[in-house]
Design a protein around this nucleic acid. Structure first.
Lengths: 232, 232
DNA sequence: CGCGTTTTTGATCTAACTCAAGCTTTGTGG
DNA sequence: CCACAAAGCTTGAGTTAGATCAAAAACGCG
Protein backbone atom coordinates (compact mmCIF):
# COMPACT_ATOMS: atom_id res chain seq x y z
CA UNK A 1 0.00 0.00 0.00
CA UNK A 2 1.32 3.43 -0.88
CA UNK A 3 2.03 5.77 1.91
CA UNK A 4 2.98 9.37 2.30
CA UNK A 5 6.71 8.77 2.20
CA UNK A 6 6.52 6.99 -1.11
CA UNK A 7 4.90 9.88 -2.82
CA UNK A 8 7.01 12.56 -1.24
CA UNK A 9 10.13 10.61 -2.11
CA UNK A 10 9.61 10.67 -5.82
CA UNK A 11 7.89 13.90 -6.62
CA UNK A 12 9.60 16.89 -8.10
CA UNK A 13 10.30 19.85 -5.83
CA UNK A 14 7.48 21.83 -7.40
CA UNK A 15 4.68 22.80 -5.08
CA UNK A 16 6.55 21.33 -2.14
CA UNK A 17 4.22 22.87 0.35
CA UNK A 18 0.97 24.67 0.38
CA UNK A 19 2.10 28.23 -0.18
CA UNK A 20 -0.90 28.64 -2.40
CA UNK A 21 -2.25 32.13 -2.03
CA UNK A 22 -4.74 32.49 -4.77
CA UNK A 23 -4.21 30.56 -7.92
CA UNK A 24 -1.60 27.93 -8.56
CA UNK A 25 -0.77 24.81 -10.50
CA UNK A 26 0.36 21.57 -8.94
CA UNK A 27 1.83 18.52 -10.60
CA UNK A 28 0.91 14.84 -10.22
CA UNK A 29 2.17 13.44 -6.89
CA UNK A 30 2.42 16.93 -5.41
CA UNK A 31 0.67 17.39 -2.13
CA UNK A 32 -1.85 20.13 -1.63
CA UNK A 33 -1.63 19.46 2.09
CA UNK A 34 -1.01 16.57 4.44
CA UNK A 35 -3.08 15.29 7.28
CA UNK A 36 -2.45 17.21 10.48
CA UNK A 37 -1.38 20.34 8.65
CA UNK A 38 -2.85 23.70 9.52
CA UNK A 39 -4.66 25.10 6.48
CA UNK A 40 -5.17 28.77 5.64
CA UNK A 41 -8.49 28.17 3.98
CA UNK A 42 -10.53 25.93 1.76
CA UNK A 43 -9.24 24.99 -1.67
CA UNK A 44 -11.19 24.99 -4.86
CA UNK A 45 -10.18 22.71 -7.68
CA UNK A 46 -10.44 24.48 -11.05
CA UNK A 47 -9.06 21.69 -13.19
CA UNK A 48 -7.28 18.38 -12.86
CA UNK A 49 -7.96 15.82 -10.16
CA UNK A 50 -7.04 15.28 -6.57
CA UNK A 51 -7.18 12.28 -4.28
CA UNK A 52 -8.19 12.69 -0.64
CA UNK A 53 -6.97 10.10 1.82
CA UNK A 54 -6.02 9.29 5.36
CA UNK A 55 -3.47 6.91 6.74
CA UNK A 56 -3.65 5.26 10.13
CA UNK A 57 -0.68 4.90 12.47
CA UNK A 58 -0.31 1.34 11.27
CA UNK A 59 0.02 2.49 7.66
CA UNK A 60 -3.41 1.56 6.34
CA UNK A 61 -4.54 3.92 3.61
CA UNK A 62 -8.16 4.97 3.24
CA UNK A 63 -9.35 7.03 0.32
CA UNK A 64 -12.20 9.30 1.24
CA UNK A 65 -12.75 10.74 -2.19
CA UNK A 66 -11.56 11.83 -5.60
CA UNK A 67 -12.06 15.46 -6.54
CA UNK A 68 -12.58 17.04 -9.93
CA UNK A 69 -13.07 20.59 -11.14
CA UNK A 70 -15.51 22.59 -9.07
CA UNK A 71 -14.98 20.59 -5.89
CA UNK A 72 -14.04 22.12 -2.56
CA UNK A 73 -11.09 20.55 -0.79
CA UNK A 74 -10.34 20.74 2.90
CA UNK A 75 -13.85 21.22 4.24
CA UNK A 76 -13.07 18.91 7.11
CA UNK A 77 -10.63 21.55 8.35
CA UNK A 78 -13.56 23.84 9.10
CA UNK A 79 -13.69 22.28 12.53
CA UNK A 80 -10.41 23.75 13.79
CA UNK A 81 -8.31 24.72 10.80
CA UNK A 82 -6.50 21.41 10.69
CA UNK A 83 -7.28 18.79 8.09
CA UNK A 84 -7.28 15.13 9.08
CA UNK A 85 -7.01 14.28 5.42
CA UNK A 86 -4.13 14.44 2.91
CA UNK A 87 -4.71 15.78 -0.59
CA UNK A 88 -2.48 14.77 -3.47
CA UNK A 89 -2.77 15.67 -7.16
CA UNK A 90 -3.34 12.82 -9.60
CA UNK A 91 -3.11 15.05 -12.66
CA UNK A 92 -1.67 18.47 -13.23
CA UNK A 93 -4.21 20.60 -11.43
CA UNK A 94 -5.17 24.21 -11.07
CA UNK A 95 -6.17 25.28 -7.62
CA UNK A 96 -7.32 28.40 -5.84
CA UNK A 97 -7.81 29.10 -2.16
CA UNK A 98 -10.56 30.75 -0.16
CA UNK A 99 -9.03 31.97 3.13
CA UNK A 100 -10.90 31.10 6.32
CA UNK A 101 -11.25 34.81 7.01
CA UNK A 102 -13.25 35.28 3.88
CA UNK A 103 -15.48 32.36 4.76
CA UNK A 104 -16.13 33.46 8.31
CA UNK A 105 -16.50 37.17 7.71
CA UNK A 106 -18.15 36.86 4.32
CA UNK A 107 -15.61 38.73 2.22
CA UNK A 108 -15.83 40.87 -0.88
CA UNK A 109 -17.14 38.76 -3.67
CA UNK A 110 -17.27 35.45 -1.88
CA UNK A 111 -20.35 33.62 -3.07
CA UNK A 112 -21.66 32.45 0.25
CA UNK A 113 -24.78 30.85 -1.18
CA UNK A 114 -22.70 28.75 -3.49
CA UNK A 115 -20.36 27.78 -0.71
CA UNK A 116 -23.20 26.48 1.46
CA UNK A 117 -24.57 24.66 -1.54
CA UNK A 118 -21.25 22.93 -2.12
CA UNK A 119 -21.11 21.80 1.50
CA UNK A 120 -24.46 20.09 1.08
CA UNK A 121 -23.26 18.46 -2.13
CA UNK A 122 -20.10 17.20 -0.46
CA UNK A 123 -22.07 15.76 2.42
CA UNK A 124 -24.36 13.99 0.00
CA UNK A 125 -21.48 12.50 -1.88
CA UNK A 126 -20.01 11.23 1.36
CA UNK A 127 -23.33 9.64 2.21
CA UNK A 128 -23.47 7.95 -1.16
CA UNK A 129 -19.98 6.59 -0.64
CA UNK A 130 -20.97 5.30 2.77
CA UNK A 131 -24.06 3.62 1.38
CA UNK A 132 -22.06 1.95 -1.30
CA UNK A 133 -19.61 0.55 1.23
CA UNK A 134 -22.35 -0.89 3.42
CA UNK A 135 -23.16 -4.39 2.49
CA UNK A 136 -22.70 -4.42 -1.23
CA UNK A 137 -21.28 -6.88 -3.67
CA UNK A 138 -18.13 -6.08 -5.60
CA UNK A 139 -19.89 -5.79 -8.96
CA UNK A 140 -22.31 -3.18 -7.59
CA UNK A 141 -19.48 -1.20 -6.09
CA UNK A 142 -17.52 -1.04 -9.29
CA UNK A 143 -20.60 -0.23 -11.36
CA UNK A 144 -21.45 2.53 -8.91
CA UNK A 145 -17.95 3.90 -9.15
CA UNK A 146 -17.97 4.07 -12.93
CA UNK A 147 -21.40 5.68 -12.97
CA UNK A 148 -20.43 8.26 -10.37
CA UNK A 149 -17.39 9.13 -12.39
CA UNK A 150 -19.33 9.29 -15.65
CA UNK A 151 -22.07 11.42 -14.07
CA UNK A 152 -19.45 13.79 -12.73
CA UNK A 153 -18.02 14.21 -16.22
CA UNK A 154 -21.47 14.74 -17.69
CA UNK A 155 -22.31 17.43 -15.14
CA UNK A 156 -19.14 19.21 -16.22
CA UNK A 157 -20.15 19.00 -19.86
CA UNK A 158 -17.63 16.30 -20.72
CA UNK A 159 -18.13 12.98 -22.43
CA UNK A 160 -19.51 10.49 -19.90
CA UNK A 161 -19.05 7.38 -21.99
CA UNK A 162 -15.40 7.55 -22.91
CA UNK A 163 -12.80 8.75 -20.48
CA UNK A 164 -9.50 8.12 -18.83
CA UNK A 165 -9.39 7.41 -15.12
CA UNK A 166 -6.77 9.42 -13.27
CA UNK A 167 -6.28 6.89 -10.47
CA UNK A 168 -4.67 3.46 -10.23
CA UNK A 169 -6.59 0.23 -9.78
CA UNK A 170 -5.27 0.10 -6.24
CA UNK A 171 -6.75 3.52 -5.54
CA UNK A 172 -10.09 2.37 -6.87
CA UNK A 173 -9.88 -0.77 -4.77
CA UNK A 174 -9.15 1.12 -1.56
CA UNK A 175 -11.89 3.62 -2.30
CA UNK A 176 -14.40 0.82 -2.84
CA UNK A 177 -13.22 -1.25 0.10
CA UNK A 178 -12.11 -4.14 -2.10
CA UNK A 179 -8.89 -5.96 -2.98
CA UNK A 180 -7.13 -4.85 -6.18
CA UNK A 181 -7.56 -8.29 -7.66
CA UNK A 182 -11.30 -8.09 -7.15
CA UNK A 183 -11.48 -4.77 -8.97
CA UNK A 184 -9.53 -6.21 -11.90
CA UNK A 185 -11.69 -9.29 -12.06
CA UNK A 186 -14.98 -7.40 -11.87
CA UNK A 187 -13.81 -5.00 -14.54
CA UNK A 188 -12.86 -7.98 -16.69
CA UNK A 189 -16.33 -9.41 -16.16
CA UNK A 190 -17.95 -6.16 -17.28
CA UNK A 191 -15.82 -6.31 -20.42
CA UNK A 192 -16.72 -9.94 -21.11
CA UNK A 193 -20.37 -8.98 -20.99
CA UNK A 194 -19.89 -6.10 -23.38
CA UNK A 195 -20.93 -3.49 -20.84
CA UNK A 196 -17.63 -1.62 -20.89
CA UNK A 197 -14.44 -1.64 -22.88
CA UNK A 198 -11.16 -1.07 -21.16
CA UNK A 199 -7.59 -0.39 -22.10
CA UNK A 200 -5.65 0.23 -18.97
CA UNK A 201 -6.95 3.52 -17.55
CA UNK A 202 -9.01 4.25 -20.63
CA UNK A 203 -12.65 3.29 -20.15
CA UNK A 204 -15.51 3.22 -22.60
CA UNK A 205 -19.01 2.56 -21.35
CA UNK A 206 -20.99 0.65 -23.96
CA UNK A 207 -24.18 -0.09 -22.06
CA UNK A 208 -24.91 2.56 -19.47
CA UNK A 209 -28.41 1.23 -18.77
CA UNK A 210 -27.12 -2.19 -17.84
CA UNK A 211 -24.35 -0.68 -15.77
CA UNK A 212 -26.92 1.31 -13.82
CA UNK A 213 -29.05 -1.72 -13.18
CA UNK A 214 -26.02 -3.59 -11.87
CA UNK A 215 -25.31 -0.65 -9.59
CA UNK A 216 -28.85 -0.81 -8.25
CA UNK A 217 -28.45 -4.51 -7.60
CA UNK A 218 -31.19 -5.50 -10.02
CA UNK A 219 -28.92 -7.81 -11.93
CA UNK A 220 -25.66 -9.41 -11.03
CA UNK A 221 -22.62 -8.72 -13.17
CA UNK A 222 -21.43 -12.29 -12.87
CA UNK A 223 -24.79 -13.55 -14.05
CA UNK A 224 -23.48 -14.69 -17.40
CA UNK A 225 -20.40 -16.21 -15.88
CA UNK A 226 -22.56 -18.14 -13.46
CA UNK A 227 -24.95 -19.33 -16.12
CA UNK A 228 -22.04 -20.76 -18.02
CA UNK A 229 -20.78 -22.50 -14.92
CA UNK A 230 -24.18 -23.95 -13.99
CA UNK A 231 -24.68 -25.17 -17.57
CA UNK A 232 -21.59 -27.31 -17.17
CA UNK B 1 -35.25 -4.91 7.10
CA UNK B 2 -37.32 -2.11 8.55
CA UNK B 3 -38.71 0.44 6.23
CA UNK B 4 -40.51 3.71 6.45
CA UNK B 5 -43.98 2.20 6.47
CA UNK B 6 -43.24 0.06 9.50
CA UNK B 7 -42.32 2.97 11.63
CA UNK B 8 -45.06 5.27 10.48
CA UNK B 9 -47.61 2.54 10.97
CA UNK B 10 -47.07 2.16 14.67
CA UNK B 11 -46.17 5.56 15.97
CA UNK B 12 -48.51 7.80 17.92
CA UNK B 13 -50.02 10.78 16.13
CA UNK B 14 -47.69 13.17 17.98
CA UNK B 15 -45.31 15.17 15.83
CA UNK B 16 -46.83 13.73 12.67
CA UNK B 17 -44.98 16.08 10.46
CA UNK B 18 -42.25 18.62 10.73
CA UNK B 19 -44.17 21.70 11.76
CA UNK B 20 -41.32 22.47 14.09
CA UNK B 21 -40.84 26.18 14.31
CA UNK B 22 -38.42 26.71 17.10
CA UNK B 23 -38.41 24.24 19.91
CA UNK B 24 -40.29 21.01 20.09
CA UNK B 25 -40.34 17.51 21.50
CA UNK B 26 -40.71 14.38 19.39
CA UNK B 27 -41.39 10.85 20.54
CA UNK B 28 -39.65 7.61 19.60
CA UNK B 29 -40.58 6.51 16.05
CA UNK B 30 -41.67 10.04 15.16
CA UNK B 31 -40.13 11.40 12.01
CA UNK B 32 -38.34 14.69 12.02
CA UNK B 33 -38.49 14.57 8.24
CA UNK B 34 -38.47 12.03 5.44
CA UNK B 35 -36.18 11.74 2.47
CA UNK B 36 -37.31 13.94 -0.38
CA UNK B 37 -39.05 16.41 1.91
CA UNK B 38 -38.43 20.10 1.62
CA UNK B 39 -36.96 21.40 4.88
CA UNK B 40 -37.30 24.89 6.30
CA UNK B 41 -33.90 24.83 7.90
CA UNK B 42 -31.35 22.80 9.78
CA UNK B 43 -32.32 21.05 12.99
CA UNK B 44 -30.36 21.00 16.18
CA UNK B 45 -30.77 18.12 18.57
CA UNK B 46 -30.84 19.35 22.19
CA UNK B 47 -31.51 16.01 23.83
CA UNK B 48 -32.47 12.46 22.94
CA UNK B 49 -31.25 10.60 19.88
CA UNK B 50 -32.10 10.45 16.22
CA UNK B 51 -31.30 7.97 13.48
CA UNK B 52 -30.49 9.18 9.97
CA UNK B 53 -31.09 6.80 7.11
CA UNK B 54 -31.89 6.38 3.46
CA UNK B 55 -33.85 3.71 1.66
CA UNK B 56 -33.36 2.72 -1.94
CA UNK B 57 -36.21 2.07 -4.38
CA UNK B 58 -35.71 -1.63 -3.76
CA UNK B 59 -36.22 -1.18 -0.03
CA UNK B 60 -32.64 -1.49 1.19
CA UNK B 61 -32.04 0.60 4.27
CA UNK B 62 -28.77 2.39 4.89
CA UNK B 63 -28.05 4.18 8.14
CA UNK B 64 -25.81 7.18 7.65
CA UNK B 65 -25.55 8.13 11.29
CA UNK B 66 -26.90 8.36 14.79
CA UNK B 67 -27.25 11.81 16.33
CA UNK B 68 -27.06 12.90 19.93
CA UNK B 69 -27.39 16.23 21.70
CA UNK B 70 -25.52 19.04 20.04
CA UNK B 71 -25.64 17.51 16.56
CA UNK B 72 -26.97 19.28 13.50
CA UNK B 73 -29.49 17.36 11.45
CA UNK B 74 -30.34 17.96 7.82
CA UNK B 75 -27.06 19.45 6.65
CA UNK B 76 -27.34 17.51 3.42
CA UNK B 77 -30.37 19.66 2.59
CA UNK B 78 -28.06 22.67 2.26
CA UNK B 79 -27.62 21.75 -1.37
CA UNK B 80 -31.18 22.61 -2.45
CA UNK B 81 -33.39 22.57 0.63
CA UNK B 82 -34.39 18.96 0.16
CA UNK B 83 -32.96 16.19 2.31
CA UNK B 84 -32.11 12.85 0.76
CA UNK B 85 -32.11 11.39 4.23
CA UNK B 86 -34.88 10.48 6.67
CA UNK B 87 -34.58 11.33 10.34
CA UNK B 88 -36.45 9.38 12.99
CA UNK B 89 -36.31 9.73 16.78
CA UNK B 90 -35.07 6.74 18.75
CA UNK B 91 -35.76 8.34 22.12
CA UNK B 92 -37.95 11.20 23.21
CA UNK B 93 -36.00 14.12 21.81
CA UNK B 94 -35.92 17.86 22.07
CA UNK B 95 -35.27 19.67 18.84
CA UNK B 96 -34.91 23.21 17.61
CA UNK B 97 -34.65 24.58 14.10
CA UNK B 98 -32.43 27.14 12.46
CA UNK B 99 -34.25 28.45 9.37
CA UNK B 100 -32.30 28.58 6.11
CA UNK B 101 -32.85 32.33 6.07
CA UNK B 102 -30.96 32.75 9.28
CA UNK B 103 -28.11 30.63 7.97
CA UNK B 104 -27.81 32.41 4.65
CA UNK B 105 -28.34 35.94 5.90
CA UNK B 106 -26.63 35.48 9.23
CA UNK B 107 -29.48 36.37 11.55
CA UNK B 108 -29.75 37.88 14.99
CA UNK B 109 -27.88 35.73 17.39
CA UNK B 110 -26.99 32.91 15.09
CA UNK B 111 -23.51 31.70 16.00
CA UNK B 112 -22.02 31.43 12.57
CA UNK B 113 -18.59 30.38 13.77
CA UNK B 114 -20.07 27.51 15.70
CA UNK B 115 -22.18 26.49 12.75
CA UNK B 116 -19.17 26.24 10.46
CA UNK B 117 -17.34 24.32 13.14
CA UNK B 118 -20.17 21.82 13.39
CA UNK B 119 -20.11 21.29 9.64
CA UNK B 120 -16.45 20.35 9.82
CA UNK B 121 -17.14 18.00 12.69
CA UNK B 122 -19.97 16.32 10.80
CA UNK B 123 -17.80 15.88 7.74
CA UNK B 124 -15.09 14.30 9.85
CA UNK B 125 -17.49 11.90 11.43
CA UNK B 126 -18.71 10.88 8.01
CA UNK B 127 -15.13 10.26 6.95
CA UNK B 128 -14.50 8.13 10.00
CA UNK B 129 -17.58 6.10 9.22
CA UNK B 130 -16.41 5.64 5.66
CA UNK B 131 -12.96 4.54 6.79
CA UNK B 132 -14.43 2.03 9.14
CA UNK B 133 -16.54 0.53 6.38
CA UNK B 134 -13.59 0.15 4.03
CA UNK B 135 -11.92 -3.12 4.51
CA UNK B 136 -12.34 -3.82 8.17
CA UNK B 137 -13.13 -6.95 10.06
CA UNK B 138 -16.35 -7.28 12.03
CA UNK B 139 -14.62 -7.12 15.41
CA UNK B 140 -12.91 -3.84 14.52
CA UNK B 141 -16.18 -2.36 13.31
CA UNK B 142 -18.04 -3.18 16.46
CA UNK B 143 -15.18 -2.02 18.70
CA UNK B 144 -15.04 1.22 16.73
CA UNK B 145 -18.77 1.69 17.13
CA UNK B 146 -18.71 1.24 20.90
CA UNK B 147 -15.75 3.59 21.25
CA UNK B 148 -17.36 6.26 19.08
CA UNK B 149 -20.46 6.05 21.18
CA UNK B 150 -18.54 6.14 24.44
CA UNK B 151 -16.41 9.08 23.28
CA UNK B 152 -19.55 10.94 22.28
CA UNK B 153 -20.95 10.46 25.76
CA UNK B 154 -17.69 11.54 27.36
CA UNK B 155 -17.56 14.73 25.30
CA UNK B 156 -21.03 15.52 26.60
CA UNK B 157 -19.93 14.96 30.17
CA UNK B 158 -21.73 11.65 30.54
CA UNK B 159 -20.42 8.31 31.70
CA UNK B 160 -18.55 6.65 28.82
CA UNK B 161 -18.23 3.21 30.38
CA UNK B 162 -21.80 2.39 31.26
CA UNK B 163 -24.68 3.32 29.02
CA UNK B 164 -27.77 2.22 27.23
CA UNK B 165 -27.78 2.09 23.44
CA UNK B 166 -30.85 3.70 21.89
CA UNK B 167 -30.80 1.61 18.73
CA UNK B 168 -31.58 -2.02 17.92
CA UNK B 169 -28.95 -4.59 16.98
CA UNK B 170 -30.29 -4.46 13.45
CA UNK B 171 -29.66 -0.71 13.33
CA UNK B 172 -26.10 -1.25 14.51
CA UNK B 173 -25.61 -3.97 11.93
CA UNK B 174 -26.85 -1.82 9.05
CA UNK B 175 -24.75 1.11 10.22
CA UNK B 176 -21.65 -1.09 10.34
CA UNK B 177 -22.38 -2.90 7.08
CA UNK B 178 -22.75 -6.27 8.77
CA UNK B 179 -25.45 -8.88 9.33
CA UNK B 180 -27.33 -8.72 12.64
CA UNK B 181 -26.10 -12.17 13.54
CA UNK B 182 -22.51 -11.04 13.13
CA UNK B 183 -23.05 -8.09 15.46
CA UNK B 184 -24.55 -10.39 18.10
CA UNK B 185 -21.74 -12.88 17.77
CA UNK B 186 -18.97 -10.29 17.95
CA UNK B 187 -20.60 -8.68 20.95
CA UNK B 188 -20.80 -12.10 22.57
CA UNK B 189 -17.08 -12.58 21.87
CA UNK B 190 -16.25 -9.27 23.53
CA UNK B 191 -18.21 -10.40 26.55
CA UNK B 192 -16.47 -13.78 26.67
CA UNK B 193 -13.15 -12.00 26.77
CA UNK B 194 -14.25 -9.74 29.58
CA UNK B 195 -13.91 -6.57 27.51
CA UNK B 196 -17.54 -5.56 27.80
CA UNK B 197 -20.60 -6.64 29.73
CA UNK B 198 -23.98 -6.57 28.07
CA UNK B 199 -27.58 -6.90 29.05
CA UNK B 200 -29.68 -6.28 26.02
CA UNK B 201 -29.21 -2.57 25.18
CA UNK B 202 -27.32 -1.91 28.37
CA UNK B 203 -23.55 -1.88 27.81
CA UNK B 204 -20.70 -1.69 30.26
CA UNK B 205 -17.17 -1.30 28.98
CA UNK B 206 -14.73 -3.09 31.26
CA UNK B 207 -11.49 -2.77 29.30
CA UNK B 208 -11.45 0.36 27.19
CA UNK B 209 -7.75 0.02 26.34
CA UNK B 210 -8.22 -3.41 24.85
CA UNK B 211 -11.33 -2.27 23.02
CA UNK B 212 -9.33 0.54 21.44
CA UNK B 213 -6.57 -1.76 20.36
CA UNK B 214 -9.11 -4.06 18.73
CA UNK B 215 -10.54 -1.05 16.93
CA UNK B 216 -7.07 -0.17 15.65
CA UNK B 217 -6.62 -3.71 14.40
CA UNK B 218 -3.68 -4.42 16.68
CA UNK B 219 -5.32 -7.45 18.14
CA UNK B 220 -8.13 -9.62 16.94
CA UNK B 221 -11.21 -9.99 19.10
CA UNK B 222 -11.55 -13.64 18.20
CA UNK B 223 -7.96 -14.28 19.21
CA UNK B 224 -8.91 -16.23 22.31
CA UNK B 225 -11.57 -18.16 20.49
CA UNK B 226 -9.06 -19.07 17.82
CA UNK B 227 -6.38 -20.08 20.28
CA UNK B 228 -8.81 -22.45 21.87
CA UNK B 229 -9.68 -23.92 18.50
CA UNK B 230 -6.06 -24.35 17.43
CA UNK B 231 -5.23 -25.97 20.76
CA UNK B 232 -7.69 -28.73 19.95
C1' DC C 1 -51.16 -14.48 29.04
C1' DG C 2 -50.26 -14.57 24.16
C1' DC C 3 -48.21 -12.44 20.27
C1' DG C 4 -44.80 -9.73 17.79
C1' DT C 5 -40.33 -7.96 18.02
C1' DT C 6 -35.68 -8.38 19.28
C1' DT C 7 -31.73 -10.98 20.45
C1' DT C 8 -29.11 -15.01 20.36
C1' DT C 9 -26.88 -19.39 18.82
C1' DG C 10 -25.93 -23.10 15.39
C1' DA C 11 -24.86 -25.04 10.68
C1' DT C 12 -23.83 -24.29 6.06
C1' DC C 13 -22.35 -21.83 2.02
C1' DT C 14 -20.18 -18.38 -0.82
C1' DA C 15 -18.16 -13.97 -2.25
C1' DA C 16 -14.17 -11.97 -1.85
C1' DC C 17 -9.53 -12.14 0.21
C1' DT C 18 -4.90 -13.90 0.12
C1' DC C 19 -1.00 -15.78 -1.94
C1' DA C 20 1.52 -16.64 -6.12
C1' DA C 21 3.13 -15.60 -10.44
C1' DG C 22 3.33 -13.71 -15.12
C1' DC C 23 2.85 -9.78 -18.03
C1' DT C 24 2.85 -4.75 -19.40
C1' DT C 25 3.98 -0.19 -18.96
C1' DT C 26 6.67 3.58 -17.20
C1' DG C 27 10.67 5.56 -15.49
C1' DT C 28 15.83 5.80 -14.81
C1' DG C 29 20.56 5.63 -15.53
C1' DG C 30 24.45 4.22 -18.15
C1' DC D 1 18.78 4.74 -27.09
C1' DC D 2 18.63 0.59 -24.81
C1' DA D 3 18.43 -2.25 -20.50
C1' DC D 4 16.97 -2.85 -16.29
C1' DA D 5 14.04 -1.82 -12.29
C1' DA D 6 9.94 -0.59 -10.35
C1' DA D 7 5.09 0.09 -10.53
C1' DG D 8 0.93 -1.29 -12.16
C1' DC D 9 -2.25 -4.68 -14.00
C1' DT D 10 -4.05 -9.28 -14.69
C1' DT D 11 -5.25 -14.19 -13.95
C1' DG D 12 -5.32 -18.58 -11.26
C1' DA D 13 -5.90 -21.59 -7.02
C1' DG D 14 -7.07 -22.17 -2.38
C1' DT D 15 -8.88 -20.32 2.04
C1' DT D 16 -11.84 -17.90 5.11
C1' DA D 17 -14.65 -14.29 7.24
C1' DG D 18 -18.93 -13.28 7.31
C1' DA D 19 -23.58 -13.93 4.95
C1' DT D 20 -27.54 -16.72 4.87
C1' DC D 21 -30.85 -19.92 6.52
C1' DA D 22 -33.10 -21.89 10.50
C1' DA D 23 -34.89 -21.83 14.89
C1' DA D 24 -35.02 -21.09 19.78
C1' DA D 25 -35.02 -17.99 23.74
C1' DA D 26 -35.98 -13.43 26.04
C1' DC D 27 -38.47 -9.44 26.26
C1' DG D 28 -42.24 -6.03 26.27
C1' DC D 29 -46.73 -4.70 25.36
C1' DG D 30 -51.82 -4.71 24.90
Amino acid sequence: MNNVVNYSGKRKPTGQRSAISHNSVIQPHDYLFRMGEKLDGIYMLNSGSVKLFRTTESGEEYITGFCASGDLIGLDALVDGVSRTSAVALDTSNISMIPFNTIVRGGDRFDYQKFIHQIGATLNRENDHTMMLSQRTADRRLAWFLIEYADGLASRGLCPTEFSLPMTRTDIAIFLGLAVETVCRELATLCDEGIVKKNRRRIEILDMARLRSISRGEVCADKLAKEIRSAA
